[in-house]
Design a protein around this nucleic acid. Structure first.
Lengths: 250, 250
DNA sequence: AGAATAGTGTCTGTAAGACACTATGCC
DNA sequence: GGCATAGTGTCTTACAGACACTATTCT
């Protein structure tokens, strides 16, 4: 039985004033990966404004409550603004928040990573005419000193990516629409930073039933190679065993 | 060469007024799991205030920029306030944010999940004298209708937990400090919702070298069982293969 | 022919599943 | 002895690694 002096939820919400409370800022950041010339690369943008004006950073920015429907939508918007790509592989990696990570105060950022084929991208100078570039990633790091804690965010995304490459078909999303098994293997090797046995690799990929033979051949190489395409019906494949290391030392 | 009319970063930060911008609210939520009587259980609290006053929800609340150093600290604070436990297994699962999920407006919440042994917990009525309870989780759901989108958050955490149980030693964190292999197997089975082959299970766990024999025996059962303890030196073990399903149908 | 790259045959090794078996206690 | 639970022996199966082999094209 409800006493009339109690506030209903409707009344509560009518009186609720969000501006009374201190809130952290909320942003998203995105490590956008591709593979170019046997190197894992990440898209960087040069910051046009303070703080860290002139530094390179991951793609990202504040959530705009007036524009963004949800968090994933905000990530897709940033990605679209910088690359023109609308439907890449996009996965949330981690959210970090602290008093220290942004000099403007307490901030929370949700970090996504995206995988896409380099040939889909026309780099766009975004709002503020910032310049953008691909930077090679080695051991989870780029040569440039990154703004904020973006070096740490990139390292976390790269570690997550490497981990998942051991038991999934994720690298397919880094390939152009048609490719050979050797090219796919090279992509795996680039991310893992080591050579793989080609027999094991082919057996693993082919038995997963995630590729379609186009019937075409790539004749740019010595011996022509079969050209495959990702099966549209296939989502990300999860293998039941990891790619393991070599069993013998060199 | 710097023109004197340019603003330095210091000047920029001195002038920066965070209150000029609309921000989403930022909170954390935590699915706190334990296993009691062969059932996976999650800790729920009854909301003392609007919105969803009187509904059950996961443990959580706003980040307090004045109190919390960082996101993980905020999660630990909530956990401590509700359970008194300070160092459980705690892992970030997902962050969701949208205009719709909280009637007070755009909100972002980072969801953690915690694993702990039921015998560590003295349930505490927290600030606002809310009541708390353990609720059994079946197929990722509890019987109660949860506040906000907490049913979806719980489902995501539970799915993540189930997935990781296939290739890690995570369930160790749900056990009391000493336990038998049968008890541990039962814990795995509870989470996975199916029986495991005991020979495979024992081989897997024992060869991982993560347990220590206490030398004691549990005599509550028909045949006494060796009692083990988690090796302090062992972190989470990642098996190279998943627990698979049965190979034959019944 | 020789080099380079694509692709196969087939052996070994490892860890999971199946399941019958033994071991130890209680009644 | 009969039951329940703990724990083992050992065969089969699935799939990764090793590596020598064949296949196709170019020069």
């Amino acid at each position: 039985m409800k006493r009339t002096s109690e506030v209903t939820e409707q009344e509560f919400l009518r009186e609720y004033d969000a501006s009374k409370y201190k809130r952290p800022s909320a942003s998203i950041d995105c490590a956008i990966y591709t593979v170019i010339e046997q190197q894992l690369q990440v898209l960087l943008v040069e910051r046009a404004e303070h703080p860290f004006k002139g530094s390179w950073s991951l793609v990202g920015g504040y959530i705009d409550p007036a524009v963004d429907q949800d968090l994933l939508g905000a990530a897709k918007r940033k990605l679209r603004e910088k690359t023109g790509v609308t439907t890449p592989y996009l996965e949330q990696c981690i959210t970090v928040g602290s008093k220290e990570r942004d000099p403007r105060g307490w901030s929370v950022t949700t970090v996504y990573y995206a995988l896409l084929s380099a040939d889909l991208v026309q780099l766009k100078a975004g709002a503020g005419a910032q310049s953008t570039k691909w930077a090679p990633v080695h051991e989870g790091r780029v040569a440039d000193k990154l703004a904020f804690d973006h070096a740490a965010l990139l390292a976390m995304c790269t570690e997550r990516l490497r981990g998942k490459v051991l038991y999934t078909s994720l690298p397919l999303h880094l390939m152009p629409s048609e490719f050979t098994l050797s090219e796919l293997q090279s992509c795996y090797e680039t991310i893992l930073g080591r050579a793989l046995e080609s027999k094991s690799f082919r057996r693993r990929i082919l038995s997963a039933d995630i590729l379609e033979d186009t019937g075409k051949e790539n004749t740019d190489t010595k011996r022509p190679a079969r050209i495959y395409r990702r099966l549209k019906s296939a989502g990300t494949h999860y293998f039941v065993r990891n790619i393991e290391g070599p069993h013998r030392e060199a």
